[in-house]
């Protein structure tokens, strides 16, 4: 004890400023980084948190948070490989830091490295069973892997912790749509809409109605969205409406929507495809072939392949309509 006191006194005499910092837990590097993080000045934050600066935070208790700031900053600048390196180093140094572990798991999950994300999220849940980010991460992974019941169990736990989260209710509705449990999906999406109405949730409601065998109600919801589309989404909603009209054998509606799209984008491949199907349906094969040729030359790879495939499977036109 005496030796420790002596060492502290000698340290204070050698570098009084550092000793003061240590005794008062002041960490100017950390505070500066925190300010830069809050101001979303990520390049400056990365420049400020050099390895030397991080090393100085070693005994302050702030180093895990500094790694977190650094990792998130790299992510926000889309430098994912660097972010991964930061999180991996951070979690090696602080294997029980759930924030760093969660971030690492999320990054691996968003990079589709599920086999590596799963054990990370599971480790987080062992440390903190109520960690919602890990619960949601595992729910999403299980959903992607077709383990829908397991996914539902994770969503249930997350929803108990975040019952006001509209997006989470919407994800849960989507999961139940995939499970073909339309009743639960319907309840979940209506709860999501109650909490925060959004075009995306309305669209999920429309998809639930469509899957549940009510194409007209689905179309009605979609057409409401088309009448008042969110910014920048008018074209895609109109295309979706054209295709859903086609599914419901409402050819007039399908053509009207496709034509609306073609007025804005004359060579739109999917609109051309819908027009072709309408022509085929009406027995106008030559016109269908003309539309399909435009769609097949389009920039959408799958639409182009389908159009080319349909062209191939159609017998050559015999001249008449």
């Amino acid at each position: 004890m005496r030796a420790l006191a002596l060492a502290l006194c000698l340290g204070a005499l050698a570098s009084p400023a550092r000793a003061w910092q240590f005794l008062t837990w002041r960490t100017p590097q950390y505070e500066a980084a925190e300010k830069l993080f809050l101001a979303e000045r990520f390049p400056e934050l990365i420049a400020s948190l050099t390895p030397e600066a991080l090393a100085k935070l070693r005994f302050s208790g702030k180093q895990p948070a500094a790694y977190y700031f650094l990792g998130v900053s790299h992510e926000r600048l889309r430098q994912f490989d660097r972010a991964l390196g930061v999180y991996q180093l951070g979690t090696r140094l602080y294997p029980r830091d759930t924030d760093l572990l969660t971030r690492l798991g999320q990054l691996l999950h968003s990079s589709l490295l599920e086999e590596r994300a799963i054990p990370i999220f599971e480790r987080v849940l062992r440390l903190d069973p109520n960690n919602t980010a890990a619960l949601i991460g595992l729910a999403e992974i299980d959903r992607n892997l077709g383990l829908l019941d397991q996914s539902a169990a994770y969503y249930d736990r997350a929803l108990e912790l975040l019952p006001r989260d509209a997006d989470l209710w919407r994800d849960y509705a989507e999961l139940n749509l995939a499970r073909r449990d339309y009743e639960t999906a319907d309840i979940a999406i209506r709860l999501s809409l109650q909490r925060r109405p959004s075009a995306d949730s309305r669209l999920v409601l429309a998809r639930i109605r469509r899957a549940d065998g009510d194409p007209q109600e689905a179309l009605d919801i979609l057409l409401e969205l088309c009448a008042n589309p969110p910014p920048g989404r008018a074209l895609e909603l109109s295309l979706l409406a054209a295709v859903w009209h086609m599914e419901a054998r409402q050819w007039h509606g399908a053509v009207a929507r496709a034509q609306q799209v073609l007025r804005a984008a004359p060579d739109n491949p999917l609109a051309r495809y819908v027009m072709a199907r309408a022509h085929l349906q009406a027995g106008r094969r030559a016109q269908a072939v003309k539309e399909l040729r435009v769609a097949a030359a389009g920039s959408e790879p799958f639409v182009a392949k389908v159009a080319a495939g349909v062209l191939k499977s159609l017998a050559p036109p015999r001249g008449g309509e």
Binding site: D167, L168, D171, Y273, E300
Partner: peptide, 25 residues
């Protein structure tokens, strides 16, 4: 801070099914 970032994550993590032309078809 974690709350801010977590909320951002929750909002963006589970993207809705794509509505690009290929996905619709």
């Amino acid at each position: 801070l974690f709350g801010i970032v977590l909320t951002h994550f929750l909002a963006s993590a589970q993207a809705l099914p794509s509505l690009d032309q290929d996905a619709i078809l």
